[in-house]
Design a protein around this nucleic acid. Structure first.
Lengths: 245, 245
DNA sequence: TGAACGGAAAAAGTATACATTAACCGGTGT
DNA sequence: ACACCGGTTAATGTATACTTTTTCCGTTCA
């Protein structure tokens, strides 16, 4: 069949399908998810549906109801702001600890390489940016940062907050090539990437933390641009589909 | 029967029982948990065992194995240090945001009341502290702090990192009444509680954040005292039972 | 009127049989 | 000796029947 969802087990397919429906807003915040109808709709039994919902609760997309069952978590604009703030704080901590404790040569090397590759996204001709590749490398940069201090606990929590769709570093990037304001913010963000690398390599913990926090603020600035200047853009930001406000 | 574990459903009882065995170290880090033997041991079927393990994965005490199943998460001393650091960072953020955005009158009132009640734990006679009550009120203080800025996202993540047993604010408190060093640290900690409240009420965000971070450092100091000065104390700190190093 | 009770319906909780997949192990070929 | 292959075992994945709990609604009584 053509429209089948990829994945090995029924539970995995249900997980992917439900996640997509939550992120798209098809299953709105506050909606209770009942096992039987979902199982019928997905043409599987209740067991893998439960398994999928349990994993979505781990991801933070569902809440457990005290009397049993799950509801879709509700996100408002305030939650988007707070999640971005938290990403900044946690990435700031990852950066500070990497600076204070020292990062491995391999980690620093990989980050240097990623920053160089990010540079290449701009260099060809002024005003023209390879957004696709930039987005990909940007995600890579943030993944490296999360693990740079060598702490599994820190990496895990940074990853966790980045997993909320609108808090991801790439949440407001793709598809915005035509907006001049976004292009400028990209140049600024790349400057911050370089500064962050320099601060960590130079063991400047406070500076690294401050830069990482301000770097996350870029996402909030983009959000506020979308909200203030050009609200019609909201529909073009996929990660905002599940936000109600 | 006398030895029965409280809880409504089989899954809840399994959750409580398994959690206790992990926290006590009876199920050591790295150990894989198999459904069938556990179900037999608990005299229930596999279904509620799976449910319990899924919830423990949400808590961060179990990891999912890629090929299916769960293993007990391994914690070393470095992870304890990092978890305390993260609690400091997140509580610092909760405090800063409460100061910057302003806390509700009720929230500030409740915190003032808790601080006053904490004072009462000391006042009776010098050198004598009601540890039981202090521990309880201390937990209350930190719970209030987590929710003080009014952000559900922040409250949730602060709560989450505090749920790791050794990162809890009360992890190193109870049962230490006989150690002079711990008594002094209690007085110091209460001073920080007062300062934190004052900073938040006075809208001093940076100060509030710095105090909250340093306050969490108290836990690390106590940990290092236990590790350095008197290693025999390790056995008397229940939350360190699952730590391997 | 409105609160409390009770029963029916619907939901989650549980056990269990069966299916599928991963892991282990012993043999065989080079 | 070592790697690969195949089969057996043991684990998780799934469906389903059944049980228990919760919820909702209509009725009755104060």
């Amino acid at each position: 069949m053509a429209g089948e969802i990829s994945g090995k087990t029924h539970a995995t397919r249900a997980l992917i399908g439900l996640r997509a429906k939550i992120l798209s807003g098809e299953l709105p915040g506050g909606m209770r998810l009942f096992e039987v109808p979902l199982a019928e709709q997905l043409e599987i039994s209740r067991t893998p549906v439960r398994e999928a919902m349990s994993r979505l609760a781990e991801e933070g997309l569902l809440d457990r109801v005290s009397s049993g069952g799950f509801v879709v978590r509700t996100f408002g604009m305030a939650d988007v702001i707070d999640a971005i703030e938290l990403r900044g704080v946690l990435e700031g901590t990852a950066a500070r600890l990497a600076a204070e404790r020292g990062a491995s040569a391999e980690g620093l090397g990989k980050m240097r390489e990623t920053v160089a590759n990010l540079d290449a996204c701009f260099s060809d001709s002024p005003g023209d940016v390879d957004f696709e590749r930039y987005s990909e490398l940007n995600a890579e940069f943030h993944t490296i940062l999360a693990g740079l201090c060598g702490s599994e606990v820190v990496r895990r929590e940074v990853d966790r907050v980045m997993r909320l769709p609108f808090a991801s570093p790439s949440a407001f990037l793709p598809d915005k090539a035509d907006i001049e304001a976004f292009r400028r913010s990209l140049n600024f963000a790349q400057e911050q990437h370089r500064a962050l690398l320099s601060a960590i390599a130079g063991r400047e913990g406070a500076r690294a933390e401050a830069i990482a926090r301000e770097h996350a603020r870029t996402a909030r600035n983009n959000l506020e641009y979308v909200l203030g200047e050009d609200r019609s853009l909201i529909e073009r930001v996929p990660s905002l589909a599940l936000v109600v406000d």
